[in-house]
């Protein structure tokens, strides 16, 4: 809890600032609208948390989101009856991609940065090879309802958050953090390190499926729907105080980090900072937030952050 406090404080300040600029934000509709907008990134951040805390990266989630949406549009093609079978297929696809990432990282011992970077190229290449360069088809109303209707999106987010928190409280969560902290020690104490890591990648893939379904409904079909989401998710997780390199951080803080990032975007929009300069402010804030966290750390954990940060990549 102590670790999630700083990010929750920052989030509270940002939310208050938004509320002052736009009182509509305090009404249920306004606030839930914000939550719905933030839901995909929060879910992606939760998935990315598992991978990062185990000491790895997943750069493929952005392209996986795009693949999910484009595949759904092509296969459903406006046909209401195809919605559920396609949803099932999407879930299987996402889990398989996660599994492949995990297997390549653990069994073939390719650093996850490269393994998931390769996956990103393969996924985005393959899906547009299949559709001939541009997204085709259309999503059904049944599919779009999840991302479009605030109730559904908020419910999905709540369920995901619950599952994720339960997972981190379970044995899996503990062994995962142990693996990220010290792989060898974890292995020697009987943790099946590879299996735990593979599961982390599968969870990240699953998070991309859910985020894709929400974004497909919310934003519609486009080739850019997942662009840059991997970096945003990693940023959100790091904003939440999770250490790149693994072994430290909480999933609640990671999700709060995603909400903070989304609140930051909302706030910048409200204060009329032009689209482009938004990136600049975002860059400054990310560096400042992580620097503030890193500067405090040495007192609690003498000279750790630097060493394993490098070893991780």
């Amino acid at each position: 809890m102590r670790r999630t406090l700083p990010i929750l404080a920052v989030l509270a300040v940002l939310l208050a600032a938004i509320a002052i600029a736009n009182p509509f934000f305090l009404e249920p509709a306004g606030f839930l609208g914000f939550v719905r907008r933030a839901a995909p990134l929060v879910i992606l951040a939760a998935g990315q948390y598992f991978v990062i805390v185990s000491g790895e990266f997943d750069l493929s989630v952005g392209s996986l989101v795009t693949v999910e949406v484009v595949v759904a549009a092509r296969l459903i093609d406006g046909n209401e009856g195809a919605t559920w079978p396609v949803l099932l297929l999407l879930v299987v696809l996402g889990l398989l991609v996660g599994l492949a990432n995990g297997l390549v990282t653990t069994l073939l011992r390719v650093p996850s940065f490269i393994a998931t970077l390769g996956m990103m190229l393969v996924l985005s290449g393959a899906v547009f090879l299949w559709t001939g360069g541009a997204p085709r088809g259309a999503l059904s109303e049944g599919f779009r309802m999840f991302g479009r209707q605030t109730g559904w999106a908020v419910l999905i987010l709540a369920v995901t958050a619950l599952v994720v928190v339960l997972l981190t409280r379970a044995d899996f969560g503990r062994t995962l953090v142990a693996t990220g902290d010290n792989e060898r020690a974890a292995a020697l104490s009987g943790v099946r390190v590879n299996r735990v890591r593979i599961l982390a990648f599968v969870l990240s893939g699953a998070s991309a499926v859910v985020a894709g379904i929400l974004l497909g409904g919310f934003a519609g079909v486009s080739a850019q729907v997942g662009q840059g989401l991997e970096f945003q998710a990693i940023t959100a997780v790091v904003l939440g105080g999770v250490v790149l390199g693994g072994g430290r951080g909480s999933v609640v803080a990671a999700m709060a980090g995603a909400l903070t990032l989304e609140a930051l975007f909302t706030l910048l929009n409200l204060y009329g900072i032009s689209g482009a300069l938004e990136f600049t402010v975002q860059g400054v804030i990310i560096i400042a937030a992580v620097a503030a966290g890193a500067v405090r750390l040495p007192f609690a954990h003498p000279r750790r952050s630097k060493g394993d940060a490098h070893a991780a990549s």
Partner: peptide
Amino acid sequence: LRVHAFIATLGVGLI
């Protein structure tokens, strides 16, 4: 500032 290179250079890139 002891920021991980990934975040530091990503942030500077965004700036």
